[in-house]
């Protein structure tokens, strides 16, 4: 099962290296990792997706907690949290296929952000499954390039992550 760990850290140089280094030397595998400043510029939020099959989550979080710059770790339950990732995809589109692609963009509430004679650049957000489904539908048209940010997630309701 995939776990989404939301890790609140001090926003200081070297903190990402400490976290990434810890994962590497303890043999923990990272599926995706997103880091950015929080509402308070003193802190950053790391959203780390790991697979429980590869490593015991309890050891991962305990070892992470030992890093002096780590303040808080939340193992986000999928049902109790909202998760999103951002997709940018460049897909082949000529006069014949363009309208079909645009329909799909409509259905998935994605957005065309760049148009040129041979390709479209599309932006889309959603949870992992939705993004993957959209990509699968685009593949037959010819995906030239694809970028995903990896997952960020937030707890539902009043309680903060």
């Amino acid at each position: 099962m995939k776990h989404t760990l939301s890790v609140l850290v001090e926003n200081k140089p070297g903190v990402l290296t400490r976290v990434a280094g810890l994962f590497a030397r303890r043999g923990f595998n990272i599926d995706s990792l997103v880091v950015a400043e929080t509402e308070n510029p003193e802190f950053s939020r790391m959203t780390i997706t790991v697979d429980e099959q590869d490593q015991p989550i309890e050891q991962v979080t305990k070892q992470l907690h030992k890093l002096i710059n780590v303040l808080k770790i939340t193992d986000l339950e999928p049902a109790a949290s909202v998760e999103r990732e951002l997709l940018l995809v460049k897909v082949k589109a000529d006069a014949k296929t363009r309208s079909e692609i645009m329909q799909m963009v409509e259905i998935f509430r994605a957005k065309i952000v760049d148009v040129s004679p041979e390709v479209l650049v599309i932006e889309m957000t959603g949870n992992r499954e939705k993004v993957s489904a959209f990509v699968d539908l685009l593949r037959p048209f010819g995906v030239v390039e694809l970028m995903r940010t990896g997952r960020i997630a937030m707890r539902r309701g009043k309680k903060v992550t």
């Binding site: 140089p13 070297g14 290296t17 030397r25």
Partner: peptide
């Protein structure tokens, strides 16, 4: 040095 010693310190400062 902070990089080299990263896996073998409790903490470090530059």
């Amino acid at each position: 040095v902070t990089g080299i010693t990263l896996p073998i310190v409790k903490h470090s400062y530059l």
